[in-house]
Nucleic acid binder design. Sequence first.
DNA 1: CGATCGGTTCAACTATTCTCGAACCATGCC
DNA 2: GGCATGGTTCGAGAATAGTTGAACCGATCG
Lengths: 104, 104
Amino acid sequence: MPAATELPHPERASLEIGAVLFALSDPERRELVRELREGPQDAANCMAIDPALPKSTKSHLMKVLRESGVIRNEPNGRNRRLTLRSDDLESRFPGLLDAVLGPR
Amino acid sequence: MPAATELPHPERASLEIGAVLFALSDPERRELVRELREGPQDAANCMAIDPALPKSTKSHLMKVLRESGVIRNEPNGRNRRLTLRSDDLESRFPGLLDAVLGPR
DNA sequence: CGATCGGTTCAACTATTCTCGAACCATGCC
DNA sequence: GGCATGGTTCGAGAATAGTTGAACCGATCG
């Protein structure tokens, strides 16, 4: 059954600059975004980056990024696929991602 | 005596993207920045914008913006001159201000 | 000088966010 | 089915941030 745990994501039109800036103001969250810049990743990969952090903490980081609309988090088999919402962000706040992360 | 109350400001080189993003994540602080985009203002003007807020609260908003390096706050007669540090911000984080506030 | 004006700082309180273990919930494999 | 796996959610405590009145301070005006 393809009805796995779908998490809520804000629509492109309802992205808020304040929430996005807040999400990106944390170094660990920026680091995660930087990873996703190269392409979608399985959450497992990102979890593995800093093994010291408990998974609930990492999950929380992702939640803030997801709820602000920075990343997408969708079920993928028994783990989750994380995607940077570059298009949505670029559409609503042109240049923001590059300005924050530096040019690729 | 020109030795009035000089507040500490971070150097251009030590501006941190995290602190800047955090400062800009608040709507009231963004509003203040938007005002200063048109040019320097006396703090009194900015204080007058929303008369409901007590001055200590407004002072706190300015403090966060100042400590993150977004604005400069220097004594000017018996009040204070607020300046957006556009050049410093543009130098360290090119395009950020426009991406956050939208093009002028 | 003394009073006033503009603004900062202090201190106490509230609200929000972070952190992390424990419980939980699907999925995929045996 | 039963169990391991990958991740989310819950709940509680710690930490950080916001709000505001009162005290304060330097500059100016009378």
